[in-house]
Design a protein around this nucleic acid. Structure first.
Lengths: 156, 156
DNA sequence: CACATAATGTAGCTTCGGCTACATTATGTT
DNA sequence: AACATAATGTAGCCGAAGCTACATTATGTG
């Protein structure tokens, strides 16, 4: 799915500035990673929310999901379809949305991640409200490595 | 604005209780903020990169931008058009891309933000490489409030 | 039970960020 | 100067996520 575009460019590139190529590749890889993370961020938000609704009220209905996310119910339903396609959720018409095993697993990971990020931000002196708000965006971009460092930091 | 932590509320509160609306609105606002931040993240990446290229080699050409970002040159050109539309950059055909005053201002802010995020991550014990990589995604979601807390943390 | 209302689902449109393929313009070599 | 090549630009497609408008199905109240 990514681009086999530059491999050809690399071969055809004049070798005058040889030190730039690795830096370019590293940077491109980083940007690419950030972009694909952004792509799954929405799925993660939905799964996290559905898990919360299921735990809290026992059911996750499209209208509730839409309201919590601040989107129209049509948008929510469409995205839920994508969740189903990707094997994270199931839904029976007029019966609410449920998480598959994979979905539950993802929800648990995201919940732990979210708490860790919030706790670290608070530990750094960020006001609780800002920490909660910023974590919503940050949590999708925290690697396992960074996550472990966060854990170690909080245990000290 | 209410200071509810919705995930905690969901666990603590019995189903069907009132007082759900403010929490919903707060949560929707947070998600909405994260989404719009994600929308401007690409613009910020482009502006930051263009500033880097201009500072480094004196010119920012679409092909270089595309290669650094790991996208096709056509995609880069199209996004640069959006940059122009939004008043962040200018470009003359075959002459490269330049930043407007607004673009330069944004680039400076993003550069400072990037450094701060990386420095904080490193200070927390994140390996330099992971810090650099994660910061690429995180920096777009750090509010001014959190940024100031980061600064205070680093000065102590 | 009937019917009004709320929830859910469907259709169709828009913008954005990707891509490939093709067209055009500079550039540089001979 | 001519031509090959690299850079740039354009066109058209796709999928994702958003919206509104409309259709359908449950629900609940009189």
């Amino acid at each position: 799915m990514p681009q086999n575009h530059w491999s050809q460019n690399m071969k055809a590139k004049p070798p005058g500035t040889a030190m730039e190529l690795p830096a370019e590749l590293t940077q491109a890889r980083r940007f690419g990673k950030a972009r694909s993370a952004q792509s799954s961020a929405l799925m993660e938000d939905y799964v996290e929310l559905i898990a919360d609704l299921l735990a809290g009220t026992g059911e996750a209905r499209p209208t509730d999901i839409a309201r919590r996310l601040g989107v129209s119910h049509a948008t929510a339903i469409k995205t839920i379809s994508r969740l189903k396609r990707e094997g994270l959720a199931t839904a029976r018409p007029y019966r609410g949305v449920f998480l598959t095993a994979a979905g539950q697993e993802l929800a648990a990971r995201m919940r732990a991640r979210h708490r860790l990020v919030v706790d670290v931000l608070v530990a750094l002196g960020v006001p609780a409200e800002a920490a909660e708000s910023d974590a919503e965006g940050i949590e999708h971009h925290v690697s396992e490595t960074t996550l472990r460092a966060f854990g170690r930091f909080l245990n000290s």
